[in-house]
Design a binder for these strands. Structure first.
Lengths: 346, 346
DNA sequence: GCTAGCACTCATTGGCGACGAGTGCCAATT
DNA sequence: AATTGGCACTCGTCGCCAATGAGTGCTAGC
């Protein structure tokens, strides 16, 4: 357990290092943060803290740099205390409320807002689709052997897929198919629909029509795809950061940001625990993220459950990042129950 | 006009510089490419070529580097002569034909293929939507005041938008609306539909129902949006290239790649002229692209008209980039008229 | 337990010279 | 007149060295 003063030292080191990016020495601490104590005293503390795994020095005659453990301490104290709202919070919130967009448009807008304000990388997507419910399924007949399957899910999101039937299909058949599928799929979650219901429908319909079987196996394809795209923004900001002067590290991060499947894992791992999670450097299971921190928030507004996130260097400004995310959450939350929200739900 | 030998020198410089990335000197040329002539002779030619604007030297006592003008010459000779197909061309073409995907899936697949093979940045999207025709419009009634508008365009692409009506709307009204809109919009291009027809419908319907007016103005919103997303890939490859060791240049390129509107302009400017266009460095009107070259191809297969592109450093391997793009075009062209193609068109 | 002092470490910086690749020019050659 | 060999010159790069200075660890004294 850390003493009161050790804690002070660790937090001061993190705070100063986040601002300057330079290793911080005992002198600086003594002058700027712990004016009561002399540099020598702080040197001793720092030496202890290094053994405890909170600080490291890049080389002998340099100041100390915080480890992820130190950042963790710092972030936890931030998360505990009440944060002052961002000065422009009011404006964003009203901006967000004015925007009358569909879900995709809203996510794109939010992603842009986040990256513009913070200068970090932003991601926005819909929450794990496993929990999102289907509202209805329609079939539009295109020609004698094709129909467009349209799946509407909670939050007004729509997915579609062109379905080819092995032989001709009439309008009435399509309507029957639609009624049956709706009867079993409506209000089920995406995953339920895929895992259980399609099996059930398939076995029930097996003997009847080859047409339906083919259609259903194509529907399965529709449901198995990652249904929601990621809205990313601001990746280029990383290039301007001194933390990423090393191209190798940049390469790792960028290759991950371009891999949709890696992003899915990123948000999957981080959102199980709560509403706002911070993953710092090596805490992230994905090695390519070891030089980055990820702040994720889940916006739970009515039918749509979104994940918003900011990705920056480990040395990122957690305080403002968290504040900005919370402000956006606030702006979305106020939508709840309002006219905008009810619009697409039932 | 350049002499025969001057031409040889320019092409040799470009060829060697593309391979090595180092300024190339008279000695190298004399030994590797123009074995008949001595270094001194070539020095004189190079000096002339520098005055003519084909070569520059980064500093005295360094070799020469080609200018965009020299690259242009080089690329034009490549485009004129017949190119050998890529050794793996067969496999890609059959891969492409085996893929039974919808248009979006196909674009994503092609984008990945391009970047995997070339290690450059790839883009794929649908051609200027101004020319793409609407096939039909449907309305699905969601609740008493909402309907989902579904627009199917050539190539099986689907767009949708949730439409809110100012007051309640019945199923029959929707069907009437749908019939009317279809009557005037079907087989029109995206732009025609937006500019002329909606105006017409609006004025005709003005006196009848406020409901319809509201719906149509929302439809306008649907048609005014950039309808097709860009599939990008491989941006991180740029980080590994020695040409981009300067972070400032990288920053410019990346910020452009993240701006959808900039990408739209990029492909707009380049595809007016023909089937396969190469834009080299400063030839590009967009300043941020001055360190990159862009190879664009338009795939004109049946109902779907796609734009495929590769973006690399000015020093990119044009020969293989062009060959790869042409191979992919080949793979798509063979689809034409086949079962896959007819699938979504009418 | 705290602090002042001191010796020590080590990354950074700037100056200096050697090196070498490449050029420009000129005189000699074909 | 075109080509070529020779030669002086330029200039970026590399390695070396000494000076600098920030920061530490340790110890003795308060």
């Amino acid at each position: 357990m850390l003493s009161e003063r050790q804690l002070e030292v660790v937090l001061a080191v993190v705070y100063d290092y986040i601002q300057t990016g330079e290793p911080v020495g005992s002198r600086t601490l003594s002058k700027k943060y712990l004016t009561g104590r002399s540099a020598a005293t702080i040197r001793n503390e720092m030496s202890d803290l290094e053994e405890l795994g909170y600080l490291v020095q890049p080389h002998t005659s340099a100041g100390r740099i915080p480890t992820s453990r130190a950042y963790r301490l710092y972030v936890d104290t931030i998360l505990q205390r009440r944060r002052a709202p961002h000065p422009e919070a009011e404006r964003w919130i009203s901006d967000l409320r004015e925007q009358r967009r569909d879900v995709e448009g809203a996510l794109a807008y939010i992603s842009q807002l986040l990256t513009r304000v913070t200068q970090y990388v932003s991601v926005a997507t819909l929450a794990p689709f496993q929990e999102i419910r289907l509202l209805r399924v329609d079939f539009l007949r295109m020609d004698s052997t094709h129909a467009l399957a349209i799946v509407v899910v909670e939050g007004g999101l729509v997915h579609h897929k062109m379905i080819a039937f092995p032989c001709e299909i009439r309008q009435e058949e399509l309507e029957t198919l639609s009624r049956r599928i709706n009867a079993v799929m409506v209000r089920r979650t995406w995953n339920e629909a895929r895992n259980d219901l399609l099996q059930y429908v398939m076995s029930e319909l097996r003997e009847k029509e080859g047409n339906c079987r083919a259609a259903i196996s194509e529907m399965d394809g529709l449901l198995s795809a990652q249904p929601f795209r990621f809205y990313r923004g601001g990746a280029h900001h990383l290039l301007a950061m001194p933390d990423f002067k090393d191209l190798g590290r940049l390469h790792a991060v960028f290759s991950l940001l371009e891999e949709e499947s890696a992003l899915v894992e990123l948000v999957d791992n981080c959102t199980l625990n709560g509403t706002l999670t911070v993953t710092i450097g090596e805490e992230n299971p994905e090695e390519r993220m070891h030089d980055c921190s990820v702040v994720l928030a889940t916006a739970n507004a009515g039918g749509r459950k979104a994940i918003l996130g900011l990705i920056g260097p480990v040395r990122m400004n957690y305080e403002s990042s968290i504040a900005v995310l919370e402000t956006v959450l606030e702006g979305l939350r106020e939508d709840d129950g309002s006219e905008e929200e009810q619009r697409h739900v039932h």
